[in-house]
Nucleic acid binder design. Structure first.
Lengths: 189, 189
DNA sequence: TCTTAATGAGTGAGTAGTCAGTCACACCAT
DNA sequence: ATGGTGTGACTGACTACTCACTCATTAAGA
């Protein structure tokens, strides 16, 4: 019965927010700059997102699910090492292709502005849980909470991406040996 | 020859900044709040620090050197495992005793406001470098840059502290098995 | 006395969010 | 087809507020 909202516009806002936040940090990303980058009026941003925090929360969800969408060909049948390696490779791949995405994801997580209900277990997270649980089966690490292992893996992957982006000449070594280190740490093998 | 500045006052400002940044994040720590918490007038803050960024940079240096001062009884003679374990334990100890310090340190590092000249190699950093280099001697990881290994170790220690603070009941397991994981990762042993 | 620390109201540059007015579009009656 | 009408998206100037930093003045101390 009235003028419909434009899905494109919402996407444009999220894209703009991602760009500006990556460039200048969340703190340095005023809604005015985001609107401008999205090609809309300052006020229009608030017809798509009630507050700036709402926008940031939705950006977080979007980025997360975008990563899971990357795991389309996940090798379900194979053993834990292959599955973990697949996630590792995809993560590093994303880090190389879209460093902004991981940077902003990390910034959002650190910002303290995310609502708790915005942490639904992910496909990636669930599979990571399963793989680390299998990897540590029958060794001492199995006593440790799975969440701890997942955080460890993510931290190692994030550091690796960051380091590779700063020193691309080590991309190959870090990808291989970083995973070796991770796997040895989990299994002792 | 004139009225002298007070060292106490400077320290009070740094203490207040640490407290407020830990509580409310760097973004939520206005200079007015820091001055108030330090018990001085808003303007006085700027006789001790030219800008807020200067204050944050000096806070960063202070916190870093404070951690190194914690390593007084570093076991110089012993093997790499013991030395690394000493640093690991001290790090977790600090994380338990003063979670604000590590939290703010991480926030400052992520803020993008730190000057490069503020990253002088530390005692802790140098020893960490040596220990990881020894640990990886004669295994594939030795091809990887030492800085990468150091970042890995720090990330693992930070995650462990964070996790323990959130789930104190796992403090013992995470301290022990976290280190085991770290050491296995480095050496394969 | 003379320099400089200390004070806190003041300044100006932002900021998130609002709002009255405008306009594009879906729907309906002719 | 055609014109009219209700709805809500769209706009950007505006508001109320916060922030880092300044400055005229006062007080301390060498």
């Amino acid at each position: 019965m009235a003028r419909p909202r434009s899905g494109d516009k919402k996407k444009a806002i999220l894209d703009a927010a991602l760009r500006i936040c990556a460039e200048r940090g969340i703190g340095g990303a005023p809604t005015s700059a985001i609107s401008k980058a999205a090609g809309i009026a300052e006020g229009s941003l608030f017809t798509y997102f009630k507050t700036k925090d709402d926008l940031l929360n939705e950006l977080y969800l979007t980025l997360r699910s975008e990563f899971s969408r990357n795991l389309r060909e996940f090798p379900h049948g194979q053993d834990a090492r292959d599955r973990l390696r697949y996630i590792w490779d995809k993560f590093l791949e994303l880090g190389a292709a879209h460093p902004e995405q991981l940077k902003v994801l990390a910034q959002l997580r650190a910002s303290g502005k995310l609502l708790k209900e915005n942490e639904p277990p992910n496909f990636a997270l669930v599979e990571l849980m399963k793989a680390t649980a299998e990897a540590t089966e029958g060794n001492g690490l199995h006593d440790v909470p799975g969440e701890y292992l997942v955080l460890m893996v993510r931290a190692q992957a994030e550091i690796t991406v960051e380091f590779i982006n700063a020193h691309p000449e080590f991309a190959g070594v870090c990808r291989e040996l970083g995973f070796k280190m991770l796997w040895k740490g989990l299994t002792g093998e």
